[in-house]
Write a protein that binds this DNA or RNA. Structure first.
Lengths: 208, 208, 208, 208
DNA sequence: GATGAATGAGCTTTCATTCAT
DNA sequence: AATGAATGAAAGCTCATTCAT
């Protein structure tokens, strides 16, 4: 039995493992999104994934653990969609950068409403660890917005205002819009319109 | 035994019942807020209330039922703090009315952060009934804002904009600010500053 | 305050006590007969009797105790309806005496089907004490029949047979007929026909 | 892995399941017979069966459900022991057929007194479903006897009599004898003698 | 590696009984 | 004597997790 053979076997095994993992994770996403975390039993998860109960525990440490992995994955994806504001000369204008980030985030969420639902409903108030992760995620977003606003002020784009509160407000507008147009409804929504509306509101408010 | 005596006794009994009820409700508010709904057992509730398990079921139909009562109570209180916009001649200016409503809501929530936590964390994704109640509450708020914006537009105070999206955004700013400054922190917060910041943001946005 | 006054008062009190007792017992008979012993809660009993829970315990030691009293009362009544066979010269013929006893028992039971139901359904398999009471009651009946048969044999009325088994059989015919015609149906039944049929069967069997 | 291996495994698994089921059922029979249905808790059942609480619920839907299965099993067995009267020419004489059925029923019950106890004590007055099952079983027996008597009358073996009442009486003799000699005593009984005595009584009564 | 039967801690709920008023 | 709010032991049942095969 050559080393290569073993390596090949090992590789194949790893790939199979990864596939199995994915299969369970994907099933979990659907189940959690449909029934909610607490209403979903491990039985539901393994049934949806088409594996035995024991198999589930070979890949994940339990119901709570797989939820954390799901959440990490989703938050990681979203984080990667949000990039720091570029103030270098020649960089796109800051409003345009915000617009791009907002579009990215909304389209990512729109591509998978199950993830939205998990993020905005199931993960809320679940337990302290999940709460901490969410809080840290949102705090990251808030700081991103705050720094963008700060830079905008420095550059004269943004008016004089309470930046801390404003950043929270801006974050709130996005969360609510996602909740309203991607979670609380099953209708198809024109994201373009919504994104424009949000940006417009954030830039000029009611009276502009 | 005079009739008055009977009435007196009955009255006293009713009062005692109401007191007991309140005692259990208040304990439940604290427990739910501290441990979260799902992490709270009926044992926790009765222990916190200082009554026997059976007593709890004398006053409430179960853990789920007491949560619904709590939620109804809180939502009722908040609803009563939000009154329709008055457009009669001589009525206060609309921005001032919004300011008043916002102040009322924030101060109500501020007076009892446990209720905030229950509203914004524990009640989210709990079950379909709770979801429906929350959704209907927020939808009411959204419509209140929408109608205020509409009237504002008619009167020329509010600029031309997508009112539906804007109303969601405005609602989102309030929810996020409550979450940030009343739920996710234990620090004392200067509500005045926050309320002003929110209003300012909603009226003029980033660039004014 | 004269002695007579006190006596009068005491007497009245005793009478009131007895009335109250009766009122609770009668209610219990109905409740037990309708819902069955285990399905009847003390709440059902006091509600049916129209007294407070505590009052119930002033008169009876508990749910089990009142059932025992009920059973004792019923069994006592039935026992009084069954009198020893009179073999004195001049006494009615033994078959006639049996007939009279059977009529008495059936009519007593017929007058109160609730008692039948309690006796034949609710009291069966309830607990060891109740079982012992029932067993002793039926054993008494069996012995009554056995002694009648013995006397009958001595006097030549009754043929040669296994008296012990025959007595059980005769008892069984009565129990089953009561169960069939007084418990398991709500229809009015012609007791006369049934009584005659039972006697006829016991005397001559299938083939006579 | 060959198909046979899988089949073998599946078969073994099924057999193991069946064994486990039986183990729990048998334990339940003993517990119900000894303590009575209401005095037996699920804890008693699992303790007697030597399995965990959860295992019990893997095989049965609850305490009530396992009792129903027990009852169905017993009633099914007994029903199979009672076959229609054969009036074809060349068939055994009807009294002999009755004798055979009686022997079969008594020996079946005698082989397992616990089941007798459950049938005649625990199942009486338990709940509406159980009552209906018992009533239907006894009604079947009664009709079996009635039809046998009818045929007997047609063939001249059975005298003129009230067949309906007589059938109830005959059924009652068997029930009482079973109760007396198989349930209410732990002594060994000469079934032969009892069976003969019952038949003799049914055929000829007291005076023959 | 995969399986699924088995586990048992822990949950919600009921209800016979007590006792301060 | 009468009341009914309060009690808490004990019941039935669920389900995340384990482990022998």
């Amino acid at each position: 039995m050559s080393e290569e053979a073993i390596d090949g076997r090992t590789l194949r095994a790893q790939k199979a493992r990864e596939t199995r993992r994915r299969q369970i994770l994907d099933a979990a996403i659907q189940v959690f999104a449909e029934k909610g975390y607490h209403q979903s039993s491990v039985s539901d998860l393994v049934q949806a994934a088409g594996v035995a109960r024991g198999t589930f525990y070979l890949y994940f440490d339990g119901k709570s653990a797989i939820f954390h992995e799901l959440l990490d994955e989703l938050l990681g994806t979203l984080r990667s969609r949000v990039q720091g504001v570029d103030t270098n000369p020649g960089a796109p204008a800051i409003p345009l950068q915000l617009r791009t980030t907002l579009d990215r985030v909304l389209s990512t969420l729109s591509d998978n409403r199950a993830l939205c639902r998990i993020l905005l409903r199931e993960a809320v108030g679940l337990d302290e660890d999940v709460d901490a992760k969410l809080q840290s995620f949102y705090e990251g977003l808030r700081r991103y917005i705050e720094s963008a606003l700060q830079k905008g002020q420095d550059m004269g784009y943004v008016r004089d205002m309470d930046i801390e509160v404003a950043a929270s407000c801006a974050l709130g507008t996005v969360k609510e819009v996602v909740s309203r147009y991607l979670v609380r409804t099953d209708d198809e929504v024109d994201l373009e319109t919504v994104a424009l509306g949000v940006l417009d509101f954030n830039l000029r408010g009611f009276v502009g």
